[in-house]
Design a protein around this nucleic acid. Structure first.
Lengths: 158, 158
DNA sequence: TAGTCAAAAGTCAAAGATGGTCAGAGGGTG
DNA sequence: CACCCTCTGACCATCTTTGACTTTTGACTA
């Protein structure tokens, strides 16, 4: 193995494989010590090797009793639907209620979310809830729809 | 369990669960002694883990015969849960991720929404998605949480 | 009754314990 | 050489732990 990042990556994957639950919890400092590197190296490994696209979810907590938790998830098989929707969201200069609705309907049709969930999100992204200037509304919708896509990448079988 | 606060939290919840009445009365000093920590640690645990939005009420008395009483709030009508949460959302000057999480967990516990829905909404309301100034983030969260309550109201037959 | 005192509990800010970010240096490969 | 990863460390953010100081309450005393 050439570099320490690869070594740490392999180590974490090994531990993950051996764990019953598809998750491990580590202390950043401990791992750094074990491999004699700076703590931020662990972040580098996580940011480059344990991404959502690769099927990993990472959560963490700072402060006393802090930890980093890495979870293995199964990616949704319809990644292409998500990326095409993401493109649409990115390209549209203005995101109005109609566009939000279209995106949500598409997701329901593709069976990536339930009708009820779409309903909820539609209301959260409505003009009424987002009582802002047009541009701000558009910005929030873009951000939130993209956040939604990110979650849908691994939901349903993760 | 990693830190003493979590341990104390679990202990108190356990005692609460085992009590017939939905309330327990403790002596701060006793608990502090049992877990070998300073008394104010107990306040920290209570302030961070037994909040109103999580469904707890805390009363206390100082001086001789002093006590801290923790009560689990039991509301029989879903309407009551919603309106109490709405009050809390209105009153809180700042809505941070932690509060959003607490509210969503509460809604799931009260069986007013599914885990997955809560998950989705949590991500939409995260700091990451709402990449804004603190006050703006707070505003959006308030608007959207209130919109959520509104949907849940009629969804659950209100 | 008013004053005093000790026994609680409350507050708050500093210190401690973790993890996160980012920009720049270092190194390998086409 | 140019470019893309890696590695590092200074600085930041967040959560927990601690302890000094404050407030409240009830009992006892003058």
């Amino acid at each position: 193995m050439r570099n320490i990042s690869d070594v740490i990556e392999q180590y974490l994957k090994q531990v993950l494989k051996e764990s019953q639950a598809n998750a491990i919890e580590i202390k950043r400092q401990d791992i750094a010590q074990r491999f004699e590197c700076v703590p931020s190296q662990i972040n580098y490994v996580i940011n480059t090797r344990f991404t959502v696209e690769k099927g990993y979810l990472v959560e963490s907590k700072r402060g006393g009793g802090g930890y980093i938790r890495i979870r293995r998830v199964i990616l949704h098989e319809k990644q292409d639907v998500l990326s095409s929707l993401m493109d649409i969201i990115h390209e549209h200069p203005r995101l109005n209620e109609q566009l939000v609705e279209n995106v949500l309907i598409r997701l329901v049709e593709e069976q990536m979310m339930h009708e009820q969930e779409a309903q909820l999100i539609y209301h959260l992204l409505s003009d009424e809830a987002l009582n802002l200037q047009v541009d701000d509304r558009s910005y929030i919708r873009r951000q939130q729809l993209l956040a939604l896509m990110k979650v849908l990448r691994y939901r349903n079988g993760g």
